[in-house]
Design a protein around this nucleic acid. Structure first.
Length: 478
RNA sequence: GCCCCCAUCGUCUAGUGGCCUAGGACAUCGGCCUUUCAAGCCGGCAACAUGGAUUCGAAUUCCAUUGGGGGCACCA
């Protein structure tokens, strides 16, 4: 996986990294991380860290990379410039590349002219025929040249992509692209080819957007006399408008999903299925199951829309599958973001089972469990009045319940059950009506975990206090 | 404009000539369960872009059309 540190790791990149990881692990190969930091203008501080942390979060551990080294270190391209310079010089010496002194302005107007005349755009190869004297004159004038690859005018270049199959390009449709920039840094094309060869890369699994520049890379391998790797281009991850997923589609940064409370195992599973499938029925898979089953020939050729609804469902499944301790420790950071002071561990342990089966994301935990932790409830007293009830009958139900609850022999589920059900009947209410009144009084919410369990966790004192407050609130509105 | 790629339910997909009156999952809509919510269970709706060709037979092969995507930088 060879990201460019120009921003944060987004889900499309994470998916590409994942496929590389899966392919390597499935085949007993090495998963290699290389930082392609050859664009000084777009370099973003912190980007490398964001990428490595994202990959680690997903559990994609690499065998060689910038932090851990490896047989072919360094893994930052910015630290390998001499390799690229030597390679470029070699191609110039062999007549496969040449210096170009064209100014950006000339290139720009050339391109505009081509567009206007509805011609294919591309470098017009003006500097191909420069003599030694021409070059010397430009150098003397202080022009820093780029090095362009001399693409053959005839013939075609093709390859067999592991996912897309046979692909062929006419060489004449490829222009003499820049290999080495005037600032001395290589372009992607040069650096990628030089390093893939130097690092003995066997398989390149990269985004579909590279498909059309693959012939350039192949042509370079030919010129160098290197054996090219096998290529597999994976289809794009799309936004809801079927365009490549980008910032305007909402959350694209992998880190955002972590912050929103998605589990790494959810993301691993979900991303695996974005463009790859095992069969016609399997969607929930563990890491090792995916590794065992993964193969490139089951990767699809069509771009897939990132379906957040399914992600949410899957995250709920994974959350429910967590042990209580695991769930608690993962939810804790999210609770502590909104809760002051930090929740008591024993109390927490009794609350968590009640929210675990209801949360689809960890960020929902503090919301779902709020009333367990705050002192004062804040809700519209009208919500206390259950269906087909009046303020009066609600008040009455609350008052009687408070009295009985005060003298209940034990504040546990069976006792509450045997007290409250008959009480409803006694009051001429349906059980659901009384429970609804008490639920709102005790939690301030209309949808909560089961009432008796909730009350037991809250405790007798707090329940009675809240029922008392409910009575006061309701009286004031009456 | 030029080059390349793609095309099955709203979404992710299964399907590589007969097993397809096209299967699964998410979403959605009913129902069951139930003190609310959630979960669970049962069921419904819902797709082979279009036109030709090949074949006894095509979602599956071929060609065109249409539509979509990507590329065409001294960015990756």
């Amino acid at each position: 996986f060879a990201p460019s540190p120009t921003g944060s790791l987004h889900v499309g990149g994470a998916r590409t990294a994942l496929f590389n990881y899966l392919f390597a692990r499935h085949n007993g190969g090495a998963f290699i991380l290389r930082i392609e930091d050859t664009d000084r203008a777009r370099f973003v501080e912190g980007s490398v860290k964001d990428h490595t942390e994202g990959l680690k979060w997903l559990g994609l551990d690499w065998d060689e990379g910038p932090d851990i080294g490896g047989d072919f270190a360094p893994y930052f391209q910015s630290q390998r410039l001499s390799l690229y310079h030597a390679a470029a010089a070699k191609l110039v010496a062999r007549g496969n590349a040449y210096y170009c002194y064209c100014s950006p302005e000339r290139l720009d107007s050339m391109r505009k002219d081509q567009m206007a005349r509805k011609l294919p755009t591309g470098y017009d190869r003006a500097c191909r025929s420069l003599t030694r004297d021409d070059c010397a004159r430009h150098e003397a004038a202080g022009v820093k040249p780029v090095v362009r690859f001399k693409v053959p005018d005839e013939g075609r270049t093709g390859f067999t992509d592991a996912i897309y199959g046979d692909i062929v390009f006419e060489n004449r449709s490829i222009d003499d692209f820049v290999m080495l920039k005037s600032d001395g840094f290589p372009t992607y094309h040069l650096a990628n080819v030089v390093d893939d060869h130097a690092m003995q890369i066997s398989h390149v699994i990269r985004a579909e957007e590279w498909l059309s520049s693959t012939p350039r890379h192949l042509l370079m391998y030919q010129a160098f006399g290197f054996e090219p790797p096998l290529y597999a281009h994976v289809p794009d991850v799309l936004g809801s408008d079927r365009r490549k997923l980008s910032k305007r589609h909402g959350d694209v940064a992998l880190a955002m999903y972590r912050e929103k409370g998605y589990l790494p195992e959810t993301m691993f599973n979900f991303l695996s299925l974005l463009g790859w499938s095992l069969d016609d029925k399997t969607d929930l898979m563990t890491r090792s199951q995916v590794i065992d089953a993964f193969s490139l020939d089951r990767v699809s050729r069509t771009g897939g829309i990132f379906n957040v609804e399914k992600l949410d469902w899957m995250n709920g499944v994974y959350i429910r599958g967590l042990s209580l301790d695991d769930f608690t420790s993962r939810a804790l950071p999210f609770l502590e973001q909104t809760l002051e002071p930090k929740p008591d561990p024993d109390y927490l342990k009794r609350v968590m089972p009640l929210v675990q089966e209801r949360a689809k994301k960890l960020t929902e935990v503090p919301v779902l469990a709020r009333f367990f932790f705050v002192e004062a409830l804040d809700y519209d007293p009208k919500l206390l009045v259950a269906k087909n009830m009046t303020v009066e009958s609600t008040l009455h139900a609350l008052e009687v319940s408070a009295r009985r609850l005060m003298s209940i022999p034990a504040f546990d589920e069976p006792s509450l059950e045997s007290l409250l059900r008959p009480l409803a009947e006694e009051l001429g209410l349906k059980a659901g009506q009384l429970f609804s009144v008490l639920r709102t009084a005790v939690t301030g919410e209309v949808a909560t975990p089961p009432l008796f369990q909730t009350m037991v966790v809250l405790g007798q004192d707090r329940c009675l206090k809240r029922i008392g407050e409910a009575i006061n609130n309701l009286r004031q509105t009456a």
